[in-house]
Every structure is written in C-alpha cells, then in structure tokens.
Nucleic acid binder design. Structure first.
Lengths: 331, 331
DNA sequence: CCCTTTCGAGAGAGCGCTCTCTCAGCCGAC
DNA sequence: GTCGGCTGAGAGAGCGCTCTCTCGAAAGGG
C-alpha cells in the first residue's frame, strides 16, 4: 500500500512519465485534453510528488533554516522579539511556498549539528539570528557556500548580508528627547557590549550627550529584566540626583521602573525613562513606557526578501531600517 | 565543483560504495583497517551524505513538523507559551537528531498548504498545537496516516494522542484557594468556550462553587490581555461587591488587574485574583499574581516522546500532567 | 508537392544513496 | 582432505523524479 508515483499517474492517464511531470510542474507545452487527463488521474489517485526524489535531481529543497544562535533558555522564551521574527519570517516564506526549519544553536555541540545540517544541503539558505560577538557560527556558515543572511549586523566582521535597524539613530532619538525635555543628568543602562545592539545604542547615547555638553553615567546590563533592575539600583547609588535614564531595551526598562518605584522615585516627575524595542509590555507598564520602536516585522520580512534575492543572484547589500520614537508617559 | 559523493569516498578508500555506506551508517561488519581508510577518505573529501538520496530510499526524513494552528498575529507573538513549547520541543528533538519544520496554519489556504506538505511525506510525524474547536486540521491530519500528536486535547473528538495538563484540577485548586481564604463572591473570567482550556477551566470553577454553595458569576474573554480588562469591568458592573476572581489565564489576569486598579479596587484586600499559566509576567504584576502553574516544558517534552514512541510502534495513550498552585500576593 | 519549421510527446539517463543478494575466503570439524 | 558454516566485501537493482534528447506529426512556405 504505497503512495502513488508519477509512473502510476502516467499509466492511468495513458501518457508517458515525462508528460505527467510536465503537467505537475505547470509547463505549458502540453495539449489541453492531455493535461486534463493527467490532472484527473492525479486527483483520482491522490498523487503528491515525492519531495526527496524531486530534490535529488533539482538540487533544491524549498526550505530554509532559521538558526537562532543564542542560549535559548535565557533569551528565546523571555524576549517576544524572537517570536515575532520567527512568525513574520514564516509568513513571508509561506508566500513563496518555502518551509522554515527551526534550529536552536545554543551549545557548542549544537553548533556542530547546525553546521553539519547546513553542509548536508538540507536547506537552500540560512537566516541567522545571532547577536553575540563571540559566536563562531556566522563565520562558519559564511564559509559553507550556502546563501546566508543575518537578522541584525553580525558582531564580528564577516561577509554576510544583513538587515538591521538604525540602533545608533534610535538611541540618539531617545536621548535627544530627554535633552529637549530639559533633563540634566541623563544616565543609561547599556546592553551587553559584545552585542551590536548593546554597542550601537551606547554609541548613540554618548554622541548626543557629548554634543549637548552633559556627562555620561553608564551602567551595563545584559538585556534581561533582572539586570535592568540591578543596573538601576546601581545608577541611583552612583548618582542619586539623576533625572533621566535611557535603557537599551524595554525588558531592562521594565526592571528599571521596578527599581525606581522601590526607591521611591516618581516616573516621569523625578526620573524620566526611555526604553528601546517597543515590546507589547511597554504599553502596560506603570506608567506606560516611552520607547524607540523599530520595525521588527518589516525587518524580518526584509531579511526573507534578501535571502530570496540571493537565490536569484541578486545583490547582497545590507538593509538598514529606520527607528521611531514612541512617546508615552514615562518621558 | 560538486559535493563529493559516496562513490568518490569509496574510490579514494579503495572499497566499494556499499562498504563506504556501511561505515557511514555505523555498521559493525567492517574490518577496522578498512573502516579507518573510509573514515579518512570522508574526512579528506569533506563528505556529507545527501539527505534527499538517503530519504528517497529509506522513506524517512528525520524531521517532524510543528504545526501551530492559530491566527498567528493574535496568539503567537503575545503568548509566551508558544515560544516555550517550540523551544522545548526543539531541544528535545535535537537529542535524537531530528529537525523541526515550523508551520503556521492560520488561514484556510495555509491549512491546505500544511495538508499537502504533510501528505507529501516531507516529515516523519506531526506535532499539532491547535486549541480551537472549529479547527478542521486535527481531523484532516489524522486521516493522513502520518503519526500525529497534539499539544493539548483536541477540541473535537478525534483519534490523536495528546499531552495536556489537568485544566479542571488546576481550576479547582485555584477556586478552592479562594474559598479557603473566606471569599464569598467569587467570579470568573472564562476563556473562549470553543477551546478546551476555556471549557475545562470553567468546569473546574463551577464544580468547586457548587460544592461550596456559592453563586457563579461568569464573564467570558478570549485569552487576550485586552479581553481580560473588558471582562473585569463588566464583572464589576454586574456585581460591585465581588471579592474574588479566578481568571482562566494570566494574560487576561493582567488585564483584569489593570481594570481593578482603574476602578479603585485594592488587590488582594478588596478583590483577590488568581490566574492560570504562570507566565513570566505573572511575577512582575502589581501585586505579583497568584496563579496555577502547569509544566509547559514537561508537556512539550512529553509530546515529543509520545511522537517518538509512535514511530517505534509504541502506545498512543494520552498523557495528563498535574498542575500546581503558586501563591503570590494577589490572593 | 516537397521540404523545413514548429510543436507536442516519449525514451531514457541519471540524481546519490541503501540494501539485498551473491560470493570469495577462511576457519574448524569430521 | 573435504565440506559446511560464517564473516566481510562487492555487484547491482532500485527509490521517484527531472530533463535533455529524440522523434513523429502537423503546419507553413517556396
């Protein structure tokens, strides 16, 4: 009781296997009545092409890997960003009938697995989400002669086209907003300095502060809520008179708000807070969080398009998307 | 400049293709020195087996589909549950060297796509996450003669083994806690009644209220934060004297807390609140949310094991995991 | 009316692998 | 010394599909 093959379809329709194949693949050089006969046979037999046989000869698989190269327990489940990227990329790939193979590359052993898998030709291309500077995967994959694109600029210089948002510009937007509101002592909770987002957002902060003749007050977190709370306490200890803080992502900003509340500071009256990312939760904090929005969905979509472009021999130029300040009540 | 084939490996090692294949697949009937010669050839050539050719003959693909059958915009990105399930399932499948193909089946057209894909034999089995009663996918997939398991009991009776938590028992735990605390007017914000979780949690609530001689006060939400806020306002309108509310999931509970705050009710002094799910955010609400925890990671892991068991001809019995009350400050 | 062009359909050679069948060689046993 | 059994290796048939090449027939031009 096997599945019907193209051979069976051809036999039933009274044509050759080649002709049946032509119909299945939508070639136009088939006479209408023959085409109909084949389609009828396909329908009656419930024929579905065998993808393994097909990709054996075409050398294509019509699926792409989405590699999330982060310790999954920490980032993946907590940060809604990942779900959004995965969802948007899936939706976009669906439109061109390609599948997403999801791979989590957390440990060194899974790195090896991913490499082997990609090298095996299971997929036509790779979308890589990796923010850590120390990550060896971008370099390893770029050596594999498989089309690779990255969500976010790779932290190490490597020849992979990427789609990113304007982290520096976004941070500048945020800090300029605080300056314009007359804040004098503007601190920042920076992200990890081995991540591009962490670096660039700190750069933006520094640039604006320098230009507006203010002193920088920096604490460093690791993009988790908890680290934001800790960093905020530290900042308050370092400079009890600070009147604003730019936090490099919303998750840490939520933690910072918590610490400010515990320290008896009113937001925004005593301390103004601006975050970065505009995650869902930013709307529901007390008070609602002013933050820098970057177009996650568009970025994911652009990444998919970039990869599809690569398949066709298109250009491999990075794409940078603009950011936007969303003013709520926290600043 | 093609990739090396098994033929090339065999030639270099001076053996037949069959012997090279034996080495690659770890068969023991190969003499040590020949085995070493083959391994050396593999290493020198950088040989990686072609998965399409292999699965053409073995009829296996070593990958499984994870089908998320929900309108993705609404549930997927907002509910951290999904990320956790996806992550846990991926990690578990990694241990047996199988890949996850992620498929979002939101619209009718994507349902068809998923069906075609599964029918095409792209994957060895399917893990289905579908909570909606009206969803035709579980029934469709169960007809396909492919091993299928479900995360959560399918809403329509269909012959698919599943892994679920004890929704009824969990709700009873929550409501009994409120009764024990001396609450008299215990309302509930139920989930959608076309979802199993929605139904069962309401059943649990009703059972305990009946047994403890209290009147039930019900509003229905759709598991989103927003709907929780709306339902809470409605409940306060219906019965301003209510002193407790059991909310069928944490996301709605967060919305409910917001409405309670806006209505000037203190939690838990005026109104006690118990949620369900124990999502990350439950720890960070004002006040921290008392809720029913169910083991999401374990459930996902059990689902994978169930599917792997099916591959080996194992039993197809549903698995029900216990729930646990996490007491924080809201009740 | 014949030859060339075009169009539609078939034949058949692979794609790279697994796996059964076959067989050579070597051992021990009678 | 011969024979049976067993181990290790090769030959070769497919898995189901695509795609080039070939060819017949119909159509059009000289």
């Amino acid at each position: 009781m096997r599945r019907p093959t193209l051979e069976a379809v051809a036999a039933r329709a009274g044509v050759s296997r080649a002709t049946a194949s032509r119909v299945v693949n939508g070639q136009t050089t088939v006479a209408p009545q023959i085409r109909d006969a084949v389609l009828r046979a396909i329908d009656e037999l419930g024929y579905v092409p065998n993808p393994a046989a097909r990709s054996l000869v075409t050398q294509r698989t019509d699926s792409v890997a989405l590699v999330v190269s982060e310790p999954p327990t920490r980032v993946f489940s907590e940060d809604p960003l990942f779900s959004t990227v995965i969802r948007s990329a899936s939706v976009e790939l669906e439109t061109v009938n390609k599948q997403v193979v999801l791979m989590l590359a957390s440990s060194a052993s899974s790195h090896a697995r991913v490499e082997r898998y990609i090298a095996g030709g299971h997929v036509d291309g790779v979308m890589l989400i990796s923010m850590h500077g120390a990550d060896p995967l971008p370099a390893a994959l770029s050596r594999l002669r498989v089309p690779v694109v990255s969500y976010g600029r790779p932290a190490v210089p490597v020849d992979i086209p990427y789609v990113d948002n304007d982290n520096v510009g976004g941070a500048e937007l945020a800090v300029r907003h605080l300056v314009a509101a007359g804040r004098r002592r503007i601190a920042t909770i920076a992200g990890p300095q081995d991540m591009i987002g962490g670096q660039d957002r700190l750069t933006g902060y520094r640039t604006v502060l320098r230009d507006s003749d203010r002193r920088s007050i920096v604490a460093v977190g690791d993009f988790t809520r908890e680290s934001g709370a800790v960093a905020m306490r530290q900042l308050l200890g370092d400079d009890p008179d600070l009147d604003a803080v730019f936090v490099a992502n919303d998750l840490m900003a939520v933690g910072a708000l918590q610490s400010l509340r515990q320290a008896g500071r009113r937001v925004p009256d005593d301390v103004a807070v601006v975050g970065f990312d505009d995650i869902e939760a930013a709307q529901y904090t007390e008070p609602p969080l002013t933050t820098v929005r970057h177009p996650v969905v568009e970025q994911a979509t652009a990444m998919v398009r970039l990869l599809l472009g690569l398949f066709e021999g298109g250009p491999a130029d990075p794409v940078i998307l603009p950011t936007e300040l969303v003013v709520r009540e926290s600043a």
